[in-house]
């Protein structure tokens, strides 16, 4: 294609009248993995929401182009069908809807949107079970309602399962590593790496460099106070891990106690 998969220019975003992103620039090409690191509250999740089209976040300046198309007017479901996947930092519980059922609806909604034939229940089941096996997700868990009563680790593995089933072109994974033990981290890391192909791209948001042992990034960026303050290669993550985000953030204000 030659064109960037994702091109974010001077992006300013506000929520509830408060500016959160203050001029983000980022170019992601197909085949690349970008890691975004940064302190809490720096706007990482906000960036992921804006890419996915979450209502309530207003773009006040700048632009987002995805595969040559202006992303901003598209509703979330259209972006999903066009291949954007968001792995949530806090996956949402959907009581009463079995994970398998949810995936069937999601997959077929996307296929329908793209003018592809919908899969029957059997087809979806086979696909989901195959991917679930790789992530050591049991058949029982697939019958349970989406994220309901799941442990933190189960929720994150379930996000990766959804990604594997939906086969996105651009995956944004928001702190998929938090709350995972070493084994789960490996499963998730392997799951993500398996989806790494020349025509896909990933943005991996994380606090810790340990995930990046499993998903080796091509680029690492530091987001601080709504701006990308540093960019580099893999080694930047290691450096940050050693030295923290010192200098990326003003000293924390200690709230006065009443």
């Amino acid at each position: 294609m030659g064109k960037a998969m994702l091109e974010i220019k001077n992006l300013h975003v506000s929520a509830e009248g408060q500016e959160i992103l203050r001029g983000v620039d980022l170019v992601v090409n197909a085949g690349e993995v970008h890691a975004i690191m940064g302190p809490n509250g720096s706007g990482k999740s906000t960036l992921s929401y804006v890419l996915a089209g979450r209502p309530g976040y207003d773009i006040t300046q700048g632009s987002i182009f995805y595969r040559g198309e202006d992303l901003t007017p598209l509703p979330p479901e259209a972006r999903a069908a066009k291949g954007i996947f968001l792995g949530f930092q806090y996956p949402v519980e959907i009581p009463g809807v079995a994970t398998m059922t949810f995936l069937k609806h999601a997959l077929n909604a996307q296929r329908k949107w793209r003018g592809e034939e919908e899969l029957d229940a059997m087809g979806v089941m086979k696909l989901v079970q195959r991917e679930a096996g790789k992530l050591k997700i049991s058949a029982d868990m697939l019958k349970r309602p989406v994220n309901t009563g799941f442990s933190g680790g189960e929720k994150k593995r379930c996000e990766i399962l959804q990604m594997a089933v939906l086969q996105p072109l651009l995956a944004v994974l928001d702190e998929t590593d938090s709350g995972l033990d070493v084994d789960a981290l490996r499963l998730v890391g392997d799951g993500v790496s398996a989806l790494r192909t020349p025509d896909r791209a990933m943005i991996v948001i994380t606090h810790y460099q340990r995930l990046l042992d499993h998903i080796v990034p091509d680029f690492v960026h530091v987001l601080s106070q709504g701006k990308i303050t540093r960019s580099g290669g893999r080694e930047l993550a290691l450096e940050l891990d050693r030295e923290g985000y010192a200098g990326e953030q003003p000293p924390e204000r200690i709230p006065a106690r009443a």
């Binding site: 089209g53 509703p75 479901e77 999903a80 999601a106």
Partner: peptide, 19 residues
């Protein structure tokens, strides 16, 4: 919940129906 469903590809009406 609505946003979660829509992010996965369901339009608003299908999301309501599912929820």
């Amino acid at each position: 919940q609505m946003f979660y469903c829509r992010q996965r590809g369901l339009d608003a009406e299908s999301a309501v129906a599912l929820l």
